[in-house]
């Protein structure tokens, strides 16, 4: 993109007037990113949700189920997760917060179409790719921040965080946020109404969340056949098929050092899905 600046009229004006730099497409990307972030941070409701949701899950669900988690099944101890329920659910709560915020940020696509701002963007001399990338990065940034809000509660959930783990966790959170924001935007192009989008997000977020082994563990020491004794087959299948399972697991590995699957599965799946969803988000935008 930088080689373009030589033929860019704005850049030429800049050189002539000594008016500083325009940073080319990067400036445009920054502008679109900044708008998404500002809008989201100004939305008080979203911030309140971002704090109250994790509190609810950690304080009520986490503390409430904590005593039942040690798997002291009378007569026969099958499987013991060496962590408290609060610790176990912590990564899931981070993911839940990221999911809500990512999908919420895609509403801005519908908003832009509904209130005309889309036109301003469409007549701007910016490639569609940059527009969509700016939007996704903006939404992902906000979602990452909301994920980090949950990390602030780590102390109350007995999760001890090392600096290196925090950095790796934030990286994972960002990747997840990028993936989900792209998905949200891709779907927002199809839905096109606020009501429809609300229905969609409720129909997708919670089922995905609950079937990602975020609120209850599978037993890594058991084979699939043995698992099927504990859980019905359809549930196990859904959990294995849910890509979020691996994202939650990878994050949990970073936060409390407990992995049920290969730790590299999460980042790999997220990276692939990010590319796929981003492509659909871009395609939806190109079709207008």
């Amino acid at each position: 993109m930088t080689d373009r600046t030589a033929t860019d009229p704005a850049a030429r004006t800049a050189a002539a007037e000594g008016d500083g730099r325009s940073f080319g497409a990067l400036g445009a990307l920054g502008g679109i990113w900044l708008r998404e972030v500002k809008r989201a941070l100004r939305d008080r409701g979203q911030l309140v949700g971002g704090v109250s949701r994790p509190l609810l899950y950690i304080l009520i669900m986490g503390i409430g189920l904590n005593p039942y988690f040690r798997a002291e099944v009378y007569g026969e101890v099958r499987f013991v997760v060496p962590y408290s329920y609060l610790q176990f659910i912590f990564a899931g709560v981070v993911v839940l917060n990221v999911m809500y915020t990512s999908v919420q940020s895609a509403v801005s696509v519908i908003w832009d179409r509904e209130f005309g701002f889309l036109r301003e963007v469409l007549v701007a001399p910016v490639p569609r790719f940059v527009v969509v990338l700016g939007k996704v990065l903006g939404g992902a940034t906000v979602a990452t921040l909301h994920g980090c809000i949950v990390l602030l509660f780590a102390y109350f959930a007995d999760v001890e965080l090392m600096l290196g783990d925090i950095v790796a966790a934030i990286g994972l959170i960002f990747l997840l946020a990028f993936c989900l924001t792209s998905l949200g935007i891709a779907i927002a192009h199809q839905v096109r109404s606020f009501e429809g989008f609300g229905v969609f997000s409720n129909a997708v977020i919670l089922p995905l969340f609950f079937t990602s082994s975020s609120v209850f563990p599978l037993d890594p020491s058991l084979s699939r056949t043995q698992l099927l004794v504990l859980y019905p087959e359809w549930l196990v299948t859904v959990i294995y098929a849910n890509p979020l399972t691996y994202a939650v697991d990878a994050l949990r590995g970073k936060l409390i050092g407990f992995n049920q699957f290969d730790p590299s599965a999460g980042p790999t799946i997220l990276a692939i899905l990010s590319v796929v969803f981003f492509y659909f988000a871009l395609r939806g935008f190109r079709r207008g």
């Binding site: 860019d8 704005a10 850049a11 004006t13 800049a14 007037e17 008016d19 500083g20 730099r21 325009s22 940073f23 080319g24 497409a25 400036g27 445009a28 920054g30 502008g31 679109i32 900044l34 708008r35 500002k38 301003e120 963007v121 701007a124 001399p125 910016v126």
Partner: peptide, 16 residues
């Protein structure tokens, strides 16, 4: 902010 957004996406340099 609206005007600045427009300037950014039209690549108008900062001072201008």
């Amino acid at each position: 902010e609206n005007l600045n957004f427009h300037g950014l996406v039209h690549r108008v340099p900062f001072r201008l």
